[in-house]
Simulated assay, not measured.
Amino acid sequence: MPRQLTVLTAPDSPDAVLGTVLPAVRACLDGTAPLAVLPAGPPEAAAREVLAPAEPLEDGADLVVVTSGSTGRGRGVLLTAAALRASGTATLARLGGPGTWLLALPVSAIAGLQVLCRSVLAGTGPTVLGPGESLAAAVRRTGGDRRYTALVPTQLHRYLEREPAALRAFDAVLVGGAATDPGLLARAREEGVAVVTTYGTTETAGGCVYDGVPLDGVRVRADDEGIAVAGPVLALGYRRDPAATAAAFAGGEFRTRDAGSVGPDGRLTVHGRLDDVVVTGGVNVAPQAVEGALREHPAVADAVVFGRPDEEWGQRVVAAVVPAGGEAPDLAVLRPWVAARLGSPSAPRELHVIAAVPTLHTGKPDRRGVAAAATDRHGPPAGSRREPASGGQQGGPS
């Protein structure tokens, strides 16, 4: 007899999270009631279509997490209670023991759900950051000998600007979900924040590599086809998609679409999404690296970089930036800034100024959404700037 999914829509109040989602997570970890938490608002309909709650649930699944679809249509990832427990137990061991967690991420994504899972496994009650609540106020409500939280890079940046003292109150601040600029990490550590970079996916029950080192029981390798992960944290596969499951989980490991390398010491370095690489003039450009260089410019508060078709270069590097204040930055200024740091092929050839970087329900930057908004089949949008064709050499943009 197939088990019936408990389907919740992510609530927007701390009381609802603690009163509805947390008990459901506890039952999910016990293996007594499989769970799915869908994002609120416009993404819910698409997530529900992927989830297909009326259809029988695959054997062994205890949690279904619908991914954000940052590289295409979202998928329903089938996780077991055993994988969630393995991830949570290894995390607590790596961080130095149980503690009280502050939830500052959406519970429709694996990172937010894992905060609740770790709290259950630690036997502690989580604190939930309320809408509009300051981090300092939430910290004051977070008791216990050890305090932890998990953030996406955008949150870390904002809290460093506004409330660095509140960040220092945590014994560990996990940062993941998107590439984190080395400059941002350096600044956080200079401020005395115990930041820990995490790498993982929904298919690995969330972060499974901390500061480059795999959690206990997790194995990673990397080749030209991307990073592969193995171990007890892996998902069963994808909801109602056996073909995709067979392709992604072949040989007892999960093949990500992330580029990376493993050093002689076993430490993993992630270079970015294989799908995001911009090939311009025969040169591979990593958008995350260009975004990091742009954010170092005093006139840029945030940036998203992507590629667009170009008759001369195959693809051109396009940047959408959020001004740091005052006048908007100029393409003629940003191009040499990036070239000096990453080489001329990485210098953007088209610039758009935006008010803010939109995010997916997971908190990740919506790179595809920004690219789509900037697309105009009749040419660049009004207010954008584009470098004219230069006639440079074949080996790459000049």
Rank of each mutant, 00 (worst) to 15 (best):
A169R: 11
T154S: 14
E350Q: 09
E133W: 12
V66H: 14
E133Y: 10
T256V: 05
T245D: 03
P365Q: 10
A46Y: 01
E350T: 00
A150H: 09
G263C: 03
V321S: 03
V283D: 00
G123R: 12
R26E: 14
D224S: 14
E49P: 10
A371P: 02
G60I: 10
R221T: 13
R377A: 12
A299L: 11
R335A: 04
E203K: 15
L63A: 07
G363L: 08
L215P: 14
L35D: 07
C117I: 10
C28T: 09
A374M: 08
V218F: 00
V233D: 00
T202A: 14
S68L: 06
V7R: 15
R267P: 07
L57D: 08
Y159M: 06
D15Y: 08
L167Y: 02
T362N: 11
I354S: 10
V77E: 01
E387A: 06
T71I: 11
P43E: 05
T362C: 09
A324P: 03
R308K: 12
G252R: 09
G143Q: 08
E55R: 15
L8H: 13
D12C: 11
A109P: 13
T149C: 15
T6Y: 10
Q4H: 13
R221E: 07
A250I: 08
P106L: 08
G379F: 03
V305C: 03
H271K: 11
P348K: 01
P232E: 02
L342M: 02
G176V: 03
A109V: 03
A324Q: 04
V317T: 00
T198I: 11
P53N: 12
P323S: 06
R367P: 01
T142H: 09
A247C: 04
S70R: 13
R85Q: 12
L236C: 01
F170A: 10
V278P: 01
L167I: 01
A10Q: 11
V64A: 03
V25W: 12
G326I: 00
A45Q: 13
A93C: 08
L174D: 02
A320L: 09
S134F: 07
D265T: 13
A247R: 15
L342Y: 01
G97L: 08
A293R: 12
P214S: 07
L29C: 12
S344G: 05
A138K: 11
L184Q: 13
I110Q: 15
H297F: 04
G72Y: 02
D59N: 10
R168Q: 05
S390K: 12
E161L: 13
A136H: 03
P365H: 08
E190S: 15
R158N: 12
A54R: 13
V277I: 14
V357Q: 05
G363N: 09
S390P: 02
A81P: 02
R335V: 01
G125R: 15
A301G: 10
Y159I: 02
